[in-house]
Each structure stands twice: as structure tokens, then as C-alpha cells.
Amino acid sequence: MKKTPEPVQVIKQRRDRALAAMVDGVPYIRFLGIRFDRRGDELTGILPYDDKLIGNPQLPAIHGGVTAAFLEVTAVIGLSWTMIWQDLEAGRLDPDHIASGALPQMPKTIGLTVDYLRSGLPRDAYARAFVLRSGRRYASVRVEAWQDNVARPIAQASGHFRMPSAFTPRTRSA
């Protein structure tokens, strides 16, 4: 007998709750105001414009450090998301546990090289991460940020990350 597929709302809620738990628990992500838009397993980071993000007030332009931070946050969340996706979908990871603070360990940044292509204008910015390789110990990610026009990136970065020692998500009871 064929198994009845899960209702779409149940699937969406589970995925959105797991993502929100991962993102909302980090004070610095809240400080910068970064959000994530999810379409299936694809994530887009959104950095809504705020006056406090400005570096050079004469231009004005977003601080280069903010651009680097936005790219790094998008890379780490993108990488964590690909790590938890399979467990989440297979039911091995309970989004309620994540929501209650039992966050899976995040990958740690080893190094990040940022290329500044255009100055960041005082408006919203977007970023998307591409996991180039994800192994047991290390992962490599490329990430790109743009504003009005996706074909005109403002910055890109590539980084190497140390994966959590054993990626078995911590649960509340275990």
C-alpha cells in the first residue's frame, strides 16, 4: 500500500522551524538584522539596509566588515543547513529539539577570502552560498552577495570550515 505523503504545510512548518531555530539563536545575526528566505532547500540571506551598517558616510557605502560578516554568516548557515537537511527530512532530527535550544554544533570558520567587487550601496543586500565540498572534517564554500542586480555582485568570498567533530546533532535527552 502506498504511504500517504505528508501534507505540504507540515513539511514547510518543520523546515521553517528548524531554520528559524538555527538563525534566531545567534545574537550577532540579530544585531546585523540578517534573515533567510527559503525555497525548498535553497537559502538566500537578506541583509535589510540600516544606517548603522554604513562604513564610509561620504559615498555612502556599507562597511566592508559588514559585507564580510554577511558573507560569512550566509556561508555558515548555508553549510549547516545542508548538514541538517538530510537528518531533518529523514525524521532523525526533531525541529522541536532545535527550537528548544538543542542546536546542532555549527562549522567553525578557518579562513575566508573576500573580494570586494563594487561598493555596497545603502539598500538591502542578498547572498547565496554554494557548498563546493563538504567532507567529514573540512568543507569549502563559495558565497556571493548582490543588491539590485544578481548579475552584478557586490562581493564574493570563498572560505574553508572545520566541521563539527562528529556531526550527530545534540538532542535534549541524549
Binding site: 557605502a61 566592508g64 564580510a68 570558520t109 578557518i110 579562513g111 577570502t113 573576500v114 573580494d115 570586494y116
Partner: peptide, 9 residues
């Protein structure tokens, strides 16, 4: 302005 920056942690 920054052209490129490599950061190692």
C-alpha cells in the same frame, strides 16, 4: 576602500 581581504581564524 578594501579590494580584497583574507582572514584566518
Amino acid at each position: 576602500a578594501t579590494l580584497d581581504l583574507r582572514i584566518d581564524y
